[in-house]
């Protein structure tokens, strides 16, 4: 496959970026998108051009590091995959592919296609955990009966890898799908219910402080989420938040 790539280049956080066009030849349709980026970087280095910085780690759809906005969609045109799981066979020979970083005020660009998603870490640190007594007398989690439906929903919410595709794709750059997945994951389980009030209040407060936009229920986040996190979680977070606010 021969392709034209339009890639966002930005030297650092404060530099003014722009789209650069590169030609790439003889790309195998069986390559992953990131492998294609590796080939491009090899080519750029041979041409004495600074290689393109992009996030990646596990390359098997688990870590949530890869974060490209490809042809106007987070993680590209395929569904329920991360960029590392996207294959070049999803494109046609001669295609022009536009590659940009995830864009949001709360995700500032570090360099080229890499973005700072530590805002997610701070939201998580505000309440996305269960405080466990580690005195040695901790109860075995398997000894606590949990409704199968709730367990399944909690597990589904827990599959969120925090990649930020929901923020990147939302027209308002809202982080509600991510935060609601983290809130739901614990709210559905007896271990998480103890701190449920503080958790949802603190996580939403942190989310707002980070500068994410408001949710307008377009549903784009659910469609683009590589893990298929459902909008049902956002409704649950809204409920949790309303009750927690009234409770104080």
């Amino acid at each position: 496959m021969n392709l034209t790539l339009k890639v966002w280049r930005q030297a650092n956080k404060s530099a003014k970026g722009k789209i650069e066009t590169y030609q790439i030849k003889e790309i195998s349709p069986d390559m992953s998108f990131l492998e294609m980026m590796d080939v491009l970087n090899e080519q750029l280095m041979l041409e004495q051009i600074d290689p393109i910085a992009f996030d990646h780690d596990c390359r098997e759809g688990i870590c949530g590091m890869c974060s490209m906005f490809i042809n106007g969609e987070a993680h590209g045109p395929d569904r329920l995959v991360t960029t590392c799981q996207l294959h070049m066979r999803k494109f046609k020979d001669g295609d022009t592919i536009t590659i940009e970083p995830f864009r949001a005020k709360a995700f500032p660009v570090i360099k080229d296609l890499t973005v700072d998603r530590s805002s997610f870490d701070r939201v998580q640190q505000a309440g996305g955990f269960v405080s466990v007594n580690t005195s040695g007398n901790t109860q075995d989690a398997n000894a606590i009966p949990i409704d199968k439906h709730d367990a399944d929903k909690a597990f589904d919410a827990a599959t969120c890898i925090g990649c930020g595709a929901c923020v990147a794709t939302c027209k308002n750059a809202s982080a509600m799908l991510f935060v609601s997945a983290k809130v739901s994951q614990y709210a559905l389980l007896p271990q998480g219910k103890v701190e449920a009030t503080d958790r949802v209040l603190n996580m939403v407060k942190q989310m707002d402080e980070e500068g994410f936009g408001n949710c307008t229920n377009t549903g784009a986040c659910e469609v683009e989420c590589p893990k298929g996190i459902s909008l049902e979680n956002i409704a649950r977070m809204n409920r949790e938040y309303l009750f927690a606010s009234l409770k104080g």
């Binding site: 536009t98 940009e100 949001a104 005020k105 308002n172 750059a173």
Partner: peptide, 11 residues
């Protein structure tokens, strides 16, 4: 919401 993404996507 418009302030939450100051740098717009080209695509």
């Amino acid at each position: 919401n418009s302030k939450s993404r100051s740098s717009k996507y080209s695509s």
